[in-house]
């Protein structure tokens, strides 16, 4: 399918089309976050044999809205001993970092906010913003728990970028590009063309099929750690660190952290679905494919991964800091390296 930005085509490459391209993902993010929060509430409740929120709206579907309104109304407390500037800045930096990632996510063949040819690299680069924000927030809070949480978070995120980056690198080698749209287009034509199953190609891809499966698994695990989700939610490990780096935050600023977490979840889910699950392409070849269907496929694939993240969160206990590092450096990294080497060899041979 031909890829382009529909607003550029309709309105020309001008300020207006750029504005729309920026605002649309923001709108999407807000709606998605509300749905994801509801999903988190409901799925956790159902897994635990509870009903979950039932009062706000039919079956409690307005609950996230109510929570957002509550958070906005809450008093904004800044601790007396905090570094005011950094304390106030941190949530915005985190949120900006995670929102910037949306710039290169292709929602459908006809819409990607900014079509740049190093999209994958860009997402990783801006993703690192969050580390700065977290360390800032944790340090500025002037709270020992926050500081511990922030330090843990920084080390964790940096460690897990590496296996994650290796996975992306392997995919880039396989696809021969860093452009998200191109990677997606490559996988058109049915689910057997997804990189999850070795990508497009002849029968020879059977050699790398187990490794691409493994790679997607590694990315899944690494992405959980990068977004600070259970089992890697050590930075906010409730039982030890109360709430980690955002212990002292309240009201709207806390909501920013919250939003950033959910938007990060979506970004990693989106990368996973674009790189390994074919993004906006239909799993059934040309059946149900098209520009509008593209949105549907992309969002539902990403949402499925978000669901798995939530599901895992309510299943697993939390790992410990040193075990997390062990997992990252001694398990994920070697596996990712082996896969990377094998995929590179495959590229050279075929």
């Amino acid at each position: 399918m031909e890829t382009f930005n529909v607003f550029d085509v309709l309105l020309g490459n001008n300020f207006l089309s750029a504005l729309i391209s920026v605002v649309l993902p923001l709108v999407f993010l807000v709606i998605y976050a509300l749905i994801a929060i509801l999903g988190e509430l409901k799925i956790s409740a159902w897994i635990q044999e509870r009903l979950g929120p039932m009062r706000t709206g039919p079956y409690g579907i307005l609950q996230p809205l109510a929570e957002v309104i509550k958070l906005i109304q809450k008093e904004d407390i800044v601790p007396a001993g905090a570094n005011k500037l950094l304390f106030n800045l941190a949530p915005y930096i985190i949120f900006a970092g995670s929102f910037a990632g949306f710039a290169v996510i292709p929602f459908t063949a006809a819409f990607v906010p900014a079509e740049i040819n190093i999209g994958l690299f860009y997402v990783f680069a801006v993703g690192a913003f969050a580390v700065i924000g977290i360390v800032m927030g944790g340090w500025a809070s002037n709270n020992k728990y926050s500081l511990l949480g922030a330090m843990r978070s920084a080390s964790q995120m940096i460690s897990y970028e590496i296996p994650g980056a290796l996975v992306i690198l392997s995919a880039a080698v396989l696809a021969n590009t860093l452009d998200m749209q191109k990677i997606t287009s490559l996988q058109e034509g049915g689910f057997w063309n997804w990189f999850l199953f070795g990508g497009p190609g002849g029968f020879s891809k059977i050699w790398i099929l187990p490794f691409t499966l493994l790679l997607s698994l590694i990315y899944m695990i690494a992405s959980l750690a990068e977004t600070n989700r259970t089992p890697f939610d050590i930075p906010e490990g409730e039982s030890e660190l109360v709430a980690g780096y955002h212990t002292e935050y309240s009201g709207m600023k806390f909501a920013m952290f919250f939003f950033a977490e959910y938007s990060n979840m979506f970004i990693v889910a989106a990368i996973l679905s674009i790189v390994f699950l074919g993004g906006w392409t239909s799993p059934f070849g040309s059946f149900m494919s098209g520009y509008w269907w593209g949105i549907f496929w992309f969002v539902s694939k990403a949402m499925f991964i978000v669901f798995i993240q939530i599901w895992l969160r309510w299943t697993l206990p939390r790992v410990r800091v040193d075990q997390l590092m062990y997992l990252g450096w001694k398990i994920l990294l070697p596996f990712a390296l082996v896969c990377f080497v094998i995929i590179s060899l495959y590229r050279i041979i075929y």
Binding site: I47, E49, P231, E238, S239, W314, L316, P317, R318
Partner: peptide, 16 residues
Amino acid sequence: FGLDAGAFTPFLYLFR
């Protein structure tokens, strides 16, 4: 104990 280790769901099964 499970809660201290970060697992929330077993907590509710047992409480049920």
